[in-house]
């Protein structure tokens, strides 16, 4: 039958493609899987031999003051930067949508494309110029700076998917501009805002380059701490903390993904 023939040729075409995608996925995930597996490996040396299952490294982690401190720093920075970036990014997204100016999108969205190292250097120069001591505050400000664009992009795409006549309908039915925003626009772009906030938090938690440049001597974040640990020797504790970080990121991505599809869907 014609249908059968067609599906046969379809499998023939897709077999090499399937192999290729599998290879790509393996390449992406094998290092991660290795990290996870070794975080439960009782053998101390990273020689590849399996010394039995253990939760020791996780236990050690709980008593590692430096790592815990770095984690706390990361969480504080992540929450603060995400909160500020979400407010500012939402406003930027609204402005991008409202005022169709030629230059505005470039200015707001450029940080996404600018090399991180450039951003890092310019931020350090800027903080020097305003005499701000490098530390938690400078890190938070830097993270806000690069997160705003991402939030603005998500919020704007949500606004673009929204029927323009909805806000007009609200005004038409008696709402002031502020009421129309609060009761119609804001609830409708909320999924975008939440997705943007989660994204900002994730970006902040694992940022290395910019944080490295803008952190002071006593404000190490988790990525910085991990880096300084593996420079000396790769301890299984690093595997454990990386696994936890991975888990956190994964959860955030899943949540954002749950919200984001509806953020792009025009009901």
């Amino acid at each position: 039958m014609a249908g059968a023939t067609r599906s046969n040729s379809a499998t023939r075409v897709s077999r090499p493609l399937l192999g290729l995608s599998l290879a790509v996925y393996l390449f992406l995930y094998i290092p991660l899987i290795v990290v996870i597996v070794y975080s439960f490996n009782a053998s101390r040396v990273q020689s590849g031999e399996w010394g039995g299952f253990t939760l020791d490294w996780y236990n050690k982690l709980l008593h590692n003051e430096t790592l815990l401190n770095a984690t706390l720093n990361s969480l504080i920075i992540g929450v603060a930067a995400a909160a500020i970036a979400t407010v500012l990014g939402t406003l930027a997204g609204l402005a991008l949508h409202r005022y169709k100016l030629r230059l505005l999108p470039v200015l707001v969205l450029a940080p996404v494309a600018i090399p991180e190292i450039l951003q890092a250097v310019s931020l350090v120069l800027f903080f020097n110029a305003i005499n701000l001591t490098l530390g938690m505050v400078s890190i938070i400000l830097s993270h806000v700076a690069f997160c705003i664009s991402f939030v603005a992009i998500v919020v704007r795409s949500r606004l673009q998917g929204m029927d323009e006549s909805l806000t007009e309908a609200a005004r038409d039915l008696g709402a002031t501009p502020w009421q129309a925003f609060r009761m119609v626009t804001l609830p409708l772009i909320m999924p975008g805002i939440i997705a943007g906030a989660l994204m900002a938090f994730t970006l902040s938690i694992d940022d290395f380059v910019i944080t490295f440049f803008t952190s002071g001597p006593d404000a190490a974040t988790l990525p910085l701490q991990i880096y300084s640990m593996i420079k000396v020797v790769v301890t299984p504790e690093v595997n454990a903390v990386s696994t936890l970080l991975m888990l956190l990121t994964l959860i955030l991505i899943i949540i954002a993904n749950k919200i984001a599809p509806s953020a792009l869907q025009a009901k």
Binding site: S165, E168, D172, L188, K267
Partner: peptide
Amino acid sequence: PEARNVHTVFQSYALFPHMTVEQNIAF
């Protein structure tokens, strides 16, 4: 617009998607 005693039925209907029918009419 909010101060005019005039209402509009839009071509796209412009019903608020996050509100029920009742909430839309109560708006």
